[in-house]
Amino acid sequence: MDGKTESETAAQSRTKVERKSDRELVVTRVVDAPARIVYDAWTKAEIFRQWWVPKSFGLTLLSCELDVRVGGGYRLVFRHGDSEMAFFGRYLEVVPPSRIVWTNEEGEDEGPVTTVTFEEQGGKTLIVLHELYPSKESLEAASGDKSGMDETFAQLDELLAGSANSGDRS
């Protein structure tokens, strides 16, 4: 009897997103499995590649290499239309089956550091994913280049100030 919309809403609300500060985003979700299984899904490439890129993204995952140990690297290559993108970084902390920390180095500037923890509670696992950006500006740049928008608005503002003034003098 439950409509599709209702179940979709339920799925969305099981995933919580919070902007914790200027530089931090936190995502939480409970998964119905013990931590060791969830940990495998994040650290074994052949499993990871089955879920990291949902079909609705319109991206194809061309390759996925995960060398999950402290100092080890990861590299994901996607195809989107005609272009290819690589996402890569290094693992800073690896504590099976409860904690992984990695860098995101794909951009020109310093990227965020991602920490994910798996906390098992009665056979289920609470996943807490924390992204710490190096600065407020870098988080805002990731959120669609808001700084660029601000600049455009400031220019519009100036332009209007100029035209309003000259208009009044005539």
Binding site: V17, W51, P54
Partner: peptide
Amino acid sequence: WAARFDEL
């Protein structure tokens, strides 16, 4: 993330 976790 909701879509990703649904796949997970």
